[in-house]
Write a protein that binds this DNA or RNA. Structure first.
Lengths: 254, 254
DNA sequence: ATTTCAATATTTGTCAAGCAAATTAACGCA
DNA sequence: TGCGTTAATTTGCTTGACAAATATTGAAAT
C-alpha cells in the first residue's frame, strides 16, 4: 500500500516568523506605532535571509498590521488596525464569498433584515439629531429626478449607514456595514431594473418619521415593509433572468 | 515654506501585482482550484523578479486566497476561501481590536444581545431537532459538577453556537460566531469569578424550552434575562477590579 | 510481467550580495 | 540665519544560486 499524501505540518519559516510577530502584537509586547527592528536586524535575529523576513512582513502588511516607510526615520511600524481598515477588509472578503456563491442572495437579504431590526431598536433609543438630519438630507437628495441610478444607490447606502450610526454602538456598526456594502452590488442589479424610486423613498420616510417619533412599532413595520418589497424585486429579477436564459436557449440550442 | 510629507501615491510593485491577481479572482477570471503560472513564469509575465512575485503571493496567502505546494504537480492554486477560514480570520481580527480597546466590553455585550435576539427570531421558525438536541446535550454537560471553568465556558459557547445554527442562515452564523468568540475571553474573565453556573444553566434551559415550544415571547424574555445577568456580573467585576487597584495604590503609592 | 527502488525533473522555499529609490539629517556656503 | 547639497539610512527590487519536497520515469530484481 502506498501512503496517501499527508499535508506537511511544518510551516514555512516565513509564516512562522509572521505568526510570531503577530502574537507579539496581539499579546501587547508590541504596541501601536512601535518600531520593529530593521529588516536586516530582524534577519540577523531570526537567523534567516532578508527576503524571508520580507515575506513574513508582507503577510502582516496584507492584514494591515504593519506599515513601512523608507528613509532614515523609516522602518516598519506596528499599526493599530482602525475599524475602517478592518471594515474594508471584511467587506471585500464577504463580497468575494458572495461572488463565489457561498452566500445566497436571499440569505443575505434575510440577515440584513433581521440585523436592521436589531439596529432600529437601539437607534430608537439612542438616535440624535445628527443622524436623523443625515437621513433627511439623503431622502431629499433621492427625490432629485436627475440623479443617476448609481448616485441613487449610493445615497441609499448612506441612508442606511446613518441608521446604523444612530445605534451609537461600534460593534453593531462594524457588523452592519459589511452586510450593507456586500449587499449593495446585488441591490444595484435589482434596483436599476425593477425597483421604483418613489416606493423606496416612501419607505425611507416612514423609517425616518418613526425614528423621529421614537416609535418602535412603526419603525419595525417600516423595516418589514422594506423587506417585503426587496423580496418582490428579487423574485421579479429572477423571473426576468429565467426568461432571458430560456430565450437564449431557444435561440441557440445546444 | 517646506512641503509637508505627502504619502506616496505610488504603491509598491508587489502590492499592485497582488491586487491585480486578487481582482482576477474576484471577477471570476481565476476560479477556485485554478493553477497560477509558476513563480518564474509570473516573474517573466509581470517583468519583475521572483522574490517580488513571492511577496505579492504571500500577501494573498495571508488572506487565504491561494495555497502553494512544492513538487512537479505543485504550484500555486486559487483557494476558494471557506466560511471557516474567514470566520477564523475575522475572529482573530476582532479579538485584536478588543484587546486594543477599540470596542468597549459593554458595547460588545449589547451588540451580542441584540444580535442574539435577531437570531432567536429566525431560530424559532427554523430550528430542527438537531440543534435543540445539541443544546440539550450541552445543558446536560454543564450540570456536571466536575467540569472545570474552562470546560464549562467552552460548553456555553457551543450552546450559543447551536442556537445560531438553528437560524439556518449562513450570514447570520458568520456574523454571530465572531461576536460569540470575541466575547468569550471577556466572559471567561467574569465567569470564573462572579457567575453562578446554576443561574446560567437555568437561563439556558429557559431558552431551550422556548425554542422547543417555538414561543417567541418567552424566548425573547429569556435572552433579555441573560443580558441583565451579564450586565450585573460585569459591574461586579469592574467593582472588584476597582477595589483591587485601589488596594494596590495604597500599598505602594507613587 | 510485476514490483520495488533509485535517479530525475519540476516547483516552491531560502539564501546571498548588491543596486535603486525614498527620505531625513547634517553640512557647507552665501 | 537661511538655503541648497551631500551623505547616510532604510525599504524596494534584482540576479543568481542552492535546498527541499514531490511526482514521474526507468532500471533492476523477483
Amino acid at each position: 500500500m502506498t501512503l496517501k499524501y499527508e499535508p506537511v505540518v511544518t510551516q514555512s519559516v516565513a509564516k512562522q516568523i509572521s505568526e510570531q510577530i503577530r502574537r507579539s502584537i496581539t499579546n501587547g509586547s508590541l504596541k501601536a506605532d512601535d518600531k520593529l527592528p530593521t529588516e536586516a536586524e530582524l534577519a540577523r535575529q531570526f537567523n534567516v535571509s532578508r527576503p524571508t523576513i520580507r515575506e513574513a512582513l508582507k503577510r502582516l502588511a496584507a492584514k494591515s498590521l504593519i506599515r513601512s516607510r523608507r528613509g532614515p526615520t523609516g522602518g516598519t511600524f506596528v499599526r493599530a488596525p482602525s475599524m475602517e481598515d478592518m471594515s474594508q477588509d471584511l467587506i471585500s472578503s464577504v463580497a468575494l464569498m458572495v461572488s463565489l456563491g457561498v452566500f445566497d442572495l436571499t440569505e443575505i437579504a434575510e440577515a440584513r433584515h433581521e440585523l436592521e431590526l436589531a439596529c432600529i431598536r437601539l437607534a430608537i433609543k439612542r438616535r440624535t439629531g445628527a443622524e436623523t438630519n443625515r437621513m433627511a438630507a439623503e431622502i431629499n437628495l433621492q427625490k432629485d429626478q436627475s440623479l443617476t441610478d448609481e448616485e441613487f444607490c449610493a445615497s441609499d447606502v448612506r441612508f442606511h449607514r446613518a441608521l446604523v450610526d444612530a445605534t451609537h454602538n461600534p460593534v453593531m456598526q462594524f457588523q452592519m456595514f459589511t452586510v450593507i456594502e456586500a449587499l449593495q452590488p446585488v441591490e444595484n442589479m435589482v434596483i436599476f431594473r425593477f425597483r421604483q424610486r418613489k416606493k423606496i423613498i416612501e419607505q425611507h420616510e416612514k423609517i425616518l418619521h418613526a425614528l423621529l417619533a421614537r416609535d418602535l412599532a412603526r419603525a419595525e413595520k417600516a423595516i418589514d415593509e422594506q423587506m417585503v418589497y426587496l423580496r418582490e424585486s428579487f423574485s421579479q429579477a429572477q423571473e426576468w433572468r429565467r426568461k432571458r436564459d430560456e430565450a437564449k436557449r431557444t435561440a441557440s440550442p445546444t
